[in-house]
Amino acid sequence: MERILGRENTGWMLIGAAALVLIACAMVVVAFGMESVAPGVHDAFHDFRHVIGMPCH
């Protein structure tokens, strides 16, 4: 079923957009292994980062 942009859907769209932004931020943290943001993320996703071609040590 198509959802047309309107007042009744704006709230859900904002929630969806916020969720997408949060997931995108998490993706960036994982992709670059930002230890300062999430301790342990570098080691946890080290192999994944190399396999998808992101720069690492």
């Binding site: 960036v28 992709a31 670059f32 190399h50 998808i52 071609g53 992101m54 720069p55 040590h57």
Partner: peptide
Amino acid sequence: LLRVGGAMLSAIEPERYHVLTPETVQGL
């Protein structure tokens, strides 16, 4: 977009972020 960010990080901190062409091609 992520790869461009990675390239910038590599330029800023080359001893920390190494760029490897085979991994980049595979990632693409």
